[in-house]
């Protein structure tokens, strides 16, 4: 009895166009989940590497030309490699080598750091580099 009532009510409520809109809304949200949560490539390509030692200003290197950067850190030298739009530590004077095991950085915002040596590297894109602003553009 109750079920029949609900069924007739839902027939009155729902037109084919409503169902069409609801299905497309569901598909839209599923697509949004897949696009923003499970796709890493949309994170914006990086084109610059920032290398920072201690409190010094970060130095910028373009990612499109391969090079080896040797930088003197707090306890010894670190060697950073840039190749094919990616960057990594290949050697550092520290003991645990977490920075080296971290491997390649390829996406804008990726960061690797050698804390004992007080050196950090971060990839950056030219756009979307601010994290918050006050006022419009």
């Amino acid at each position: 009895m109750q079920l029949e009532k609900i069924l007739t009510l839902s027939k009155e409520l729902l037109k084919p166009a409503d169902i069409l809109i609801m299905i497309s809304a569901g598909l839209l949200s599923i697509w949004l989940y897949s696009f923003f949560w499970f796709d890493n490539n949309q994170q914006g390509k990086a084109d610059t590497l920032l290398v920072q030692f201690a409190e010094n200003l970060p130095q910028e290197y373009p990612l499109n030309q391969a090079r080896l950067i040797k930088i003197q850190g707090h306890i010894g030298p670190s060697l950073i490699e840039i190749k094919q739009g990616k960057a990594r530590f290949i050697h550092s004077a520290c003991r645990n080598k977490f920075c080296v095991f971290h491997g390649w950085l390829s996406v804008s915002g990726d960061t690797s750091a050698c804390l004992p040596n007080r050196i950090s590297i971060t990839l950056k894109g030219t756009r979307n580099q601010y994290d918050a602003i006050a006022g419009g553009q």
Binding site: L14, K15, A17, D18, L20, I21, L28
Partner: peptide, 16 residues
């Protein structure tokens, strides 16, 4: 060629 949506369809569009 479909009849226009009822309140639910419009409401979903408006909310999104």
């Amino acid at each position: 060629p479909i009849s226009p949506p009822g309140a639910i369809g419009y409401a979903v569009v408006a909310a999104i």
